[in-house]
């Protein structure tokens, strides 16, 4: 078991932890997600068919229509929000979306979270201090 700590900028307050779901592709609100289940629906997306519900979503940021925040607000109200969000690119869509999703969120980490965090890692996000604690399981193949 390896523990890695990253420091960044707090975006939304609160502390939460969960299993990481990582993608190198930006996520679309309108036409990109099922806002009742948290499933990615965009046809060409690498996470298509996977849900971020209860996961720590690690992704570059938001793309697409200005309705992004409204779609993620609906996700929250449907009980399908991620546990926390870690992202790289701050845009108005991303910031407003994080605020109305009301889950702990951080950005501007001292290492690229897309390089450090892998899907399945256990991640604690502290949105008060900007600290991200990553616990990597021992991998039998030694990788």
């Amino acid at each position: 078991m390896t523990v890695i700590i990253l420091k960044g900028r707090p975006v939304v307050e609160g502390v939460a932890e969960g299993e990481a779901l990582v993608t190198r592709q930006t996520i679309s609100g309108f036409g990109g997600i099922n806002n009742q289940t948290g499933e990615i629906t965009e046809v060409r997306h690498e996470l298509r068919g996977k849900s971020f519900k209860g996961k720590v979503l690690v992704f570059p940021g938001a793309k697409g229509s200005s309705g992004w925040a409204s779609h993620f607000q609906t996700v929250r109200l449907a009980g399908a929000a991620p546990a926390a969000m870690i992202f790289n690119i701050t845009t108005t869509k991303m910031a407003l979306g994080a605020v109305v999703t009301r889950v702990p969120a951080v950005t501007d980490l001292d290492q690229d979270p897309l390089d450090v965090i892998e899907t399945g890692d256990w991640v604690k996000v502290d949105g008060n201090t900007g600290t991200v604690t990553i616990t990597k399981p021992d991998r039998k193949d030694g990788a």
Partner: peptide
């Protein structure tokens, strides 16, 4: 302003200043 096609229009062609906002902002 919220609508992306309108924001890019007023920023670029008029020199007004806006980001693409959302419904809540």
């Amino acid at each position: 302003w919220m609508e992306s096609s309108a924001v890019i229009y007023i920023n670029s062609l008029i020199g007004a200043r806006s980001n693409v906002e959302g419904a809540h902002s």
